[in-house]
Design a protein around this nucleic acid. Structure first.
Lengths: 220, 220
DNA sequence: GGCGAAATTATTGGCGCCAATTTTGTTGCA
DNA sequence: TGCAACAAAATTGGCGCCAATAATTTCGCC
C-alpha cells in the first residue's frame, strides 16, 4: 500500500481546523493575533484552499474572527462575553452531574482517578500545556458519561470560545492547586453517587477557576 | 448613488446562509432533502461560490449535512439526538427565567402580551408558517431579556438543529392550543415576577410541545 | 420482459490565477 | 526632523474552469 487513499477535502478541512484550534488552545497563537494564510500553509503543509476552508470553519465556530480584506485573527473575548460564557458553562456543566452519577461505572471511576492523579503530577512538574491538556482530558472523560452528546458538544464549543479571553486561567499556582484538589472532591462526590454535590463542585470549579470579579449567579 | 457599494463576501455568505436556514425552518426543504447547488444559485440569485460557502457554514452549524461527492442535504435528526436536543434546550431555556424576570420592563411585557395575542390569532386563522414565525418571535423577544447573549445564541442554534427531526411539531391542533395557553401562563408568571414558575412552564412548554415518548428528566 | 453492463449525463469539488485591498517603505517638502 | 503623498510589496479574496464522482439512461444479452 504505497499509495494511500486520498482523503476528501471534508476530512482534511476538519482536521486542519482542529489542528489550528488546538494550536490556539495551547496559546501558540494568542488572542488578537493575526493568522496569516501563507504561514499556516507552511506550518501545516496544506494548500491555501484548505487553509481558507479551515479558517472559515473556525470563524463560524467563533474561535477566530474574520475581518474582510484583513484576514483572520484569534477572537478576543471581551469581559462581558467571557462572563456570559462562564455563566452558560456553569448551567451546562452542572447539568451533566445527574447523568454522570447515574451512568459511570467502576472502570470509568478508576480511569478518572488516574487522570486526576496525572493532573496532580502535571501541577508539580508538568508544563502549562500538559496541565491544560490533562485537565481537558479529565473533564472530557467525565462528561462523556453524561449520556447527552449534544450537551457535550455545547460544552466544548463554549470552552474553546472562552480561550480567546485575555484573562489568564490559573493565573497563580495556588489556583492550579485548588483545581487539583477540586478534582478529588468531585471524585468523592462521584463515588458517593451524590449528583447534587457534584453539580455544586463543578459550578465552583468553573467560577473560581477563573479570577474574574463577581461571578454570575447560577440558577438553582 | 447609482452604484451601490458592493458587499463583501462575508456578508453575502452569511445572508445567504440565513436565507437558506429560514427556508429550511419553513420546511421549503424537508429533512433528508438534497440541496442542489444549481437550484440554490437560481433560487437565491447567487454565484456558485457563494452557495458553496453558505452550505459549508450551515454544515458547520449542523443545520445541514455534507456527504462527499453527493452534496448537502437537510440534516435528519434521529430520535436519540432529538431527545438530547430537547433535554439540552430545557436546561438552557429554563436558565433564562431568572434573568428575564429580573430585567424585563413594562414595555417589554406589553410587547410580549401583544405577541402572545398575535399567536392566538395565528392559531385560529394563520398558516403553519405564520404560527411558527410568531411563536419564534415570542420566545426570541422573551429570551432577549435574559441578559446573556451567549446563552441566547446556544438556544437558537439548538432550536434550529431540532428542525431537522421528522417529528412534526404541533402535530395536532390541540397541542397548538396548548402552546397558546402556556404563553399566557408564562406571561402571568412573568408579571408575578415568579422566576421558578416561569422556568417550570418553559420546561413543560418544550417537553410537551413535541409529542415524543418519555420526556427526558430535567435537572433540578 | 427482466437484468446487468456500459455509455451518457448531471453534479459536485479541488484549486490556482489574478484583481482588489491593505500594509510597508520611500521620497520630497516645509 | 516631522509629515504627507506617493510607490512598492505583501496579503487577501472572488471566482471560473474542468477533473472526479455519482446518477441515469441506453443497450444488449439471456
Amino acid at each position: 500500500m504505497t499509495e494511500r487513499k486520498r482523503q476528501n477535502s471534508n476530512t482534511r478541512r476538519a482536521m486542519l481546523a482542529n489542528e489550528i484550534a488546538q494550536a490556539i488552545r495551547l496559546r501558540a497563537f494568542r488572542p488578537g493575533e493575526w493568522l496569516r494564510q501563507i504561514d499556516l500553509e507552511e506550518r501545516f503543509q496544506a494548500t491555501r484552499f484548505d487553509v481558507r476552508s479551515a479558517l472559515d470553519e473556525l470563524a463560524v465556530r467563533k474561535t477566530i474572527e474574520h475581518v474582510p480584506n484583513r484576514g483572520y485573527r484569534v477572537a478576543e473575548v471581551d469581559l462581558k462575553t467571557y462572563e456570559e460564557i462562564l455563566a452558560t458553562r456553569i448551567i451546562l456543566e452542572r447539568a451533566t452531574a445527574e447523568g454522570i452519577v447515574a451512568r459511570i461505572d467502576e472502570a470509568g471511576i478508576a480511569r478518572l482517578d488516574a487522570l486526576a492523579a496525572q493532573f496532580s503530577a502535571a501541577v508539580r512538574t508538568g508544563s502549562r500545556t500538559e496541565q491544560s491538556e490533562i485537565n481537558r482530558a479529565f473533564h472530557q472523560f467525565m462528561y462523556s458519561f453524561c449520556g447527552n452528546a449534544v450537551l457535550e458538544e455545547m460544552i466544548w464549543s463554549l470552552r474553546d470560545r472562552g480561550r480567546g479571553s485575555q484573562i489568564t486561567v490559573w493565573s497563580s499556582h495556588e489556583l492550579l492547586q485548588k483545581s487539583d484538589r477540586e478534582h478529588y472532591e468531585m471524585m468523592a462526590a462521584l463515588k458517593a453517587r451524590d449528583a447534587e454535590r457534584l453539580a455544586a463542585l463543578i459550578a465552583t470549579h468553573i467560577a473560581k477557576g477563573a479570577p474574574v470579579g463577581p461571578v454570575p449567579v447560577e440558577p438553582g
